[in-house]
Simulated assay, not measured.
Amino acid sequence: MTVKPEWLRVKAPQWQRVGSVKEILRDLALNTVCEEASCPNIGECFNAGTATFLIMGPACTRACPYCDIDFEKKPLPLDATEPLRLAEAVQRLKLNHVVITSVNRDDLPDGGANQFVRCIEEVRRISPLTTIEVLIPDLCGNWEALAVILQAKPEVLNHNTETIPRLYRRVRPQGNYQRSLELLQRTREIAPQVYTKSGIMVGLGETDAEVREVMQDLRKVDCDILTIGQYLQPSQKHLGVQDFVTPQQFDAWREYGESIGFLQVVSSPLTRSSYHAEQVRKLMEKYPR
């Protein structure tokens, strides 16, 4: 494993607060992407009493070589009690904003769309003032399933582009760059009131020009929010880091993204898809729909 530069070091978490969040998650038998994907911000987010819930998991039907989520286990049948348990966690954690994501469930005809809907509905019922962000897979291009999710009216729909087109075959072999762009474009057409969001990793061999081209492509489909963060190798069996991008370069991408019309660009070495996601509430006040 390559030695990380100084700017990638994170503060030790306050384990008392982390432990209390974990206790609630274990009590309700819930998964979080914070734990399953070995997120470096787990301490900061858990200390703040936030978490990104991972539904329909933790086993994934795809084997992306950058991701630490398990793809070797067989996916389990959907649990009808999961939405209620998730909503109870939102209430107990007193979340103002919740992020709900999932593993890829290509084994399901709707890709898990109806489970997303049930989770949204239960959160609305139990914690009606909580804003909801869903971070969804590409649903294998099932746009009827996308429409089903959007009918539940989440405030934010997030779908990650992950990387540049040239690296897709190596980084995201079961994904499709144009399909991801189309998902975001169709979201805008189906539900123009929903804020759209996407994210990319860097440090896998892309160039500055290629990152900017992805940013331009996302703006062409009217994507509102972008996250850019440093890829970190979860283990020796995963893709290696090609380079560590400097904080100055992340700042340059943020400034460029703002200049071409993104409402918000969160760009830093430790940024992840749901990092500081609660800031979208301020964005909604500034740019109401």
Rank of each mutant, 00 (worst) to 15 (best):
T2P: 12
V3R: 07
V3I: 12
K4I: 02
K11Y: 12
V18D: 00
S20W: 00
K22G: 01
D27Q: 07
L28K: 02
L30S: 05
V33L: 10
C34F: 00
E36Y: 04
N41S: 08
I42W: 08
G43V: 00
G43K: 00
N47I: 03
N47Y: 02
N47R: 03
T50Y: 06
L54Q: 02
I55Q: 05
M56L: 08
M56T: 06
C60A: 03
R62F: 01
Y66V: 11
D70I: 11
K73C: 12
K74L: 09
K74Q: 11
A89G: 02
K94R: 11
L95D: 14
T101N: 05
T101Y: 06
V103T: 02
R105Q: 01
G111L: 00
R125E: 14
T130V: 10
E133Y: 06
E133R: 06
V134D: 13
L139M: 03
C140I: 13
E144Y: 05
A145W: 00
P154N: 06
N158R: 06
N160D: 12
T161Y: 02
R166K: 11
V171Q: 04
Q178K: 15
S180V: 03
L181E: 04
R186F: 03
R186H: 08
E189P: 11
V194I: 15
G205R: 03
D208T: 13
A209I: 10
V214N: 05
M215F: 02
K220A: 15
I228P: 10
Q230Y: 04
Q236A: 14
G240V: 12
D243E: 08
F250P: 02
W253R: 03
W253K: 01
I260C: 09
S273V: 04
S274L: 05
S274N: 05
E278R: 10
R281W: 03
M284A: 13
E285T: 10
K286T: 14
